[in-house]
């Protein structure tokens, strides 16, 4: 019999029970805060990306739902003339791993906050951060770390320098590796090389609590990014007094994961010793306008399959089940 990497493994008793319990707990948390459940179809007919599990339905190429945000966006844009303000989702997703040995996302629970374009978004961003801050406690994680970032800290300087395409991708890849020397190498000979390298060094110089925001002052783009700095500062002031015990808050100025998608604040949840983030999200204001709807949106997704894997390999990170 062929040996296959279990990208879509079976769940045995305790893992199956844990999945059911966590889904219920998190959906209850979202419902208690006014987030109503939507369940987009498991079969999607939109433009199918690489990595999706595709098959023919008659003559039509379709795919299993590879991502809830994209599936929900299609559903919302097709169905509603105005955006429902709070939605939540839970279920399975199917996509192939980037690396052949890598476990992939299989079960997700998440929520989204939608608004008409132009409405103030700061409160919605803080609301989502507060929702995510409750997740570690609900799942029984003994301790966790919430990273706050902002995609605009990289996106806006790149746009201001007129840097797009391959060169911008190379800068983002270097920042993703947290390698300012790679930024310098990628921009060798470009007029913005010195400025963007100094910016990368500023973003990467600190990775700590609220004081990290001060590192932005050393960036050549400090004035350009004043609004983002102020937005992050206000969010921190709102969140720090209500930080649950055993949750640490860190500012990650160089968070560029998903930069092509996120447009503003980003959130990532980690547990000490975990090899992958356990929840992720942020603001993505360009998604709905691209689908013909003048709406803005932000949300986060709890990666339940990673949590299940973590509970199996590092049970010491979780409270004993009651």
């Amino acid at each position: 019999m062929a040996v296959r990497t279990p990208h879509f493994p079976d769940l045995l008793f305790s893992a199956a029970a844990r999945l059911r319990k966590w889904e219920g707990t998190l959906m209850g948390h979202f419902a208690a805060h006014g987030y109503r459940e939507l369940h987009p179809s498991l079969v999607l007919r939109e433009a199918v990306p690489d990595g999706a599990l595709r098959f023919f339905d008659g003559d039509e190429l379709v795919a299993l739902r590879w991502d809830f945000t994209m599936a929900l966006a299609g559903l919302l844009a097709r169905t509603f003339p105005a955006p429902p303000d709070r939605v939540a989702y839970a279920g399975a997703v199917f996509r192939r791993p980037v690396q052949p040995w890598e476990a992939v996302e299989r079960f997700e629970v998440g929520c989204e906050r939608l608004q008409p374009e132009g409405e103030p978004a700061a409160e919605a961003d803080v609301e989502l951060a507060r929702m995510l801050m409750a997740v570690p406690g609900l799942l029984g994680l003994k301790s966790a770390i919430l990273h706050l970032g902002n995609a605009a800290l990289v996106r806006r300087p790149l746009e201001a320098e007129g840097l797009f395409g391959e060169l911008a991708d190379a800068v983002v890849a270097a920042l993703s590796r947290r390698a300012p020397h790679r930024v310098r190498e990628a921009l060798d000979g470009h007029p913005s090389a010195a400025r963007l390298t100094a910016h990368a060094e500023a973003l990467l110089s600190e990775f700590d609590g609220p004081g990290t925001l001060g590192a932005l002052a050393a960036s050549p783009y400090a004035a350009l990014l004043e609004e983002e700095r102020s937005h992050m500062d206000r969010a921190l002031q709102a969140l720090l007094p209500i930080l649950p015990p055993n949750l640490e808050l860190r500012v990650d100025l160089a968070d560029v994961a998903g930069l092509g998608f996120y447009t503003g604040p980003t959130l990532r949840l980690w547990a000490p010793g975990a090899q992958q983030e356990l929840a992720a999200g942020g603001r993505y204001d360009r998604l709905f306008p691209g689908l013909g709807r003048p709406w803005q949106a932000a949300g986060f997704c709890v990666r339940l399959s990673r949590l299940l894997d973590l509970a199996a390999t590092r049970p010491d990170l979780f409270e004993e089940p009651r």
Partner: peptide, 11 residues
């Protein structure tokens, strides 16, 4: 080089 998870979760 550093493991992304280790560096970001246990800085």
């Amino acid at each position: 080089v550093a493991a992304r998870g280790a560096y970001l979760s246990e800085p």
